[in-house]
């Protein structure tokens, strides 16, 4: 096959497939195949963990611990999310550039503002919430507030980016009509952009709440109480029956939020 024919053959899907195969082969080559993959007795341990599901720990005292830690996880998730929305919405509005469209300032100034807010949002979301948490704990010490801030920063970064995209997708005609009546930027935002984008904004926020539950659960890693913390304790004591009960509570919490969020999304889809 001539090089020219190879070039035309090797485009789009084929190139991508080759790239994926190459990437997978390269990552497998980084694995240390000298040492055994499993622990000695790993299989027996796996079986023991699986059998502990029948039945999980269901004593009233332990169920109380599960309910309390589920509430803690939910409370941290909701607090973190509400802070993330409070930070992400104004940043998203600035990043979308919809406020500056009334053409009083120069285009360059508007572009600089949008670009710098976008950069800030990207920086906030480039670090995982647990890494933020570890940094905060090292910087100012362990407290619930540190965990909530650690969660709110990357979540505000994601929310801000998506909010900005959703605000930019708002149809231009009604907004233009509002502007011709002499509405100020704040009015255009409050009565034009926000109401029209509201279903999308809410849908995404609810979807993120589901992720927030998981994020709050693993905040245990820096010592914040919640389902993850209890899982860690039970695992350390090899009490696998308790681990199963806690996992069931975690799944139930996520599924409940998922159900609520899909109800809200469906009720807004016309």
């Amino acid at each position: 096959m001539s090089l020219r024919r190879l070039q035309t053959w090797l485009t789009g899907p084929r190139l991508l497939t080759l790239g994926i195969v190459f990437a997978l082969a390269w990552s497998l080559s980084r694995v240390d195949w000298q040492q055994p993959i499993g622990h000695t007795g790993g299989g027996a341990a796996a079986l023991q963990v699986l059998l502990a599901l029948f039945p999980p720990e269901l004593s009233p005292e332990f169920l109380r611990i599960c309910v309390v830690s589920s509430w803690h996880t939910l409370a941290y998730a909701v607090a973190g999310m509400s802070l993330a929305v409070a930070l992400g919405l104004p940043l998203g509005v600035l990043a979308s550039g919809v406020l500056a469209q009334s053409a009083d300032g120069s285009g360059a100034r508007r572009w600089t503002l949008m670009a710098s807010v976008r950069f800030l949002l990207a920086a906030m979301r480039s670090v995982h919430e647990l890494v933020w948490a570890l940094l905060f704990v090292a910087a100012v010490g362990l407290s619930p507030m540190a965990a909530i801030l650690a969660m709110a920063i990357p979540y505000a970064g994601i929310l801000g980016r998506i909010y900005a995209e959703q605000l930019q997708d708002v149809p231009a005609e009604p907004v233009a009509a509002l502007r011709t009546t002499g509405a100020s930027s704040a009015h255009v935002l409050l009565y034009g952009y926000i109401p029209m984008a509201l279903p999308d904004l809410l849908s995404y926020t609810f979807y993120r709440l589901e992720c927030g539950i998981r994020a709050a659960a693993i905040m245990s890693f820096v010592g914040i109480d919640g389902i993850g913390f209890q899982i860690e304790l039970s695992l350390a004591d090899l009490l696998f029956r308790q681990v199963w009960t806690l996992l069931i509570f975690l799944v139930a919490l996520v599924v409940a939020v998922d159900w609520w969020s899909s109800r809200v999304r469906r009720s807004m889809a016309y």
Partner: peptide
């Protein structure tokens, strides 16, 4: 609990 530390 089952696998030795590493990439896998």
């Amino acid at each position: 609990f089952f696998l030795s530390p590493g990439i896998i």
